[in-house]
Design a binder for these strands. Sequence first.
DNA 1: CCCCCCCC
Length: 602
Amino acid sequence: MDFKLSNGSLEIIMNGGVYEKPVMQVLGSKKIQGSGANERYRLLVSDGKHSHSFAMLATQLNDKLITGELSDYSVVQIDRFVTSVLKSTGKGEKRVMIILDITILAPGTEVGKKIGNPQSWTEESASSAPAPSPIKPAPKPSQPSNNFPKPSAGSNLNSSLLGSQMTHPIASLSPYQNKWVIKARVMNKSAIRTWSNAKGEGKLFSMDLCDDSGEIRATAFRNECEKFYDMIQIDKVYYISRCQLKTANKQFSSLKNDYEMTFTSDTVVAECTEDISTVPSVKYDFLAISDIANKSPDTILDTIGVCRAASDLQELTAKSTGKLLKKREVTLVDQSGSAITLTLWGNEAENFDANTNPVIAVKGARLAEFNGSKSLSCLGSTMLRTNPDLPDAHRLRGWYDHGGASAELVNISARVGGSSGISGEWITFTEAEARKLGSGEKGDYYNLLGVLTFTFADNAVYKACPQEQCNKKLVDQENGLFRCEKCNREYPNYKYRLLLGANVSDPTGDQRITAFNEAAESMLGKSAEEIGRMSEYDKNAYSQLFDEVKFKTFVFKFRTKMETYSDEARLKTTVMSAQPVDYKDANARLIKSIKALSGIEV
DNA sequence: CCCCCCCC
């Protein structure tokens, strides 16, 4: 097969001209520096006429080399690149090409040979080449090119300040080159923080910047913090130049960039108001809430959901540091039929308003796992947006306002207790009895597929102590205050909690059960908060909710233990979790039982 | 030059 290279494209590019998506052949590669995250590779590329050994691979493409995908003789289309002029040691200028995006058209194994007879490109060829000069670029192709920095035409900026009228892609920034101007949108901006340690004290704020090539974090300390804090605003676009670049500490940032920047006293920032639609705003990679359940703890992820409920602001003291923490737990729901808890901290927790059930887009939250249940937690770098103007957000709004609000949901963050998961064996009430479950000291856990045959709706919701760990039922003092006997305190506020008594039946028997807050929420498909409000303001909806849940089937995880009440021993069975039936799983279990019972070997 | 992501 024949592969056509973009013959002559290299000399146009090396002279600073424009060439859209050239097709070239890779003739070799060489590691030039660093290891791990700092690895960089140089490529020898050919357009059939010339070869050039100063093509650098952007680090995010390193994998393609390491995995062998980008082997020698590969024919590639260079979808996006920038060129940069290096002042090398005494030999004058040298232009390098930084490859940002690449499509492999044919693997090296298939091509198997050098195409054409390319001559090595040198800077001497540059001067003698007939290609257009950098000042007068080649005629533009019909499509506007993103390959080259565009002049920031008509900018309100003093060009001598910025030293250049061209903007550079964020992805091309490195500590090795300091003459650049970026045109970037502010995705996120931190609050001002102060620090005080052995090395001194001061204040700072940081911001996350992006353009269509990538993203980078920038931090302004002390004077620069003061100078720029008010000016920098989320979602606005700025020309920024003269910052110090340094290797990013990946431990503290999830942005996709090997470097981060620090504002210095030379730093120039000017707002850009023209032609800013080409600068992307925050890029999300939303996961459906149901899919979050399958991710590992500590994953940093983006999601979007409707805030169905939020806890009151809670104050607690961190055991390890003694720091006073403020938090609020927000329940997000989406069309995947799932709910998850998102924990907000500090100011974000304090200022959060759940009243209108806003759509919340969250970027860079951390997946936490506690006692087998998963939830999201905000980090300092997490971005939260309320009712963002995004298609996903509008879709969710429509869904929630037209039925989604009362949809039956699986709560990923519901607490599950005990050791074995729901994936364990299912047994029946008769089997539980035969095994004498609950007769021991510690209580026993088992899973069972059962139907909710009756719910005791009266008193299923109560006003509980607002203290995080307490949950004690409060005594209404009839004066606007509520008394907690356990904390020996009075509170003006409370949180609703559920304590649901019900009957569960399976084909072999039935059992009186108790479901505490989270388990009851997942059966009723609503938060304790919502149910609490219903109990006060909409009695009909309240009783309807408890009627509707009757005869629903769940996979229950129970904890059972014999307890004695006034000389009478009774099994106390508590719902640890209640999940809707996954019929694929349920059928697989049935088939297995049938095979076992009928003597067919499995 | 900092932040180590908090709690049940």
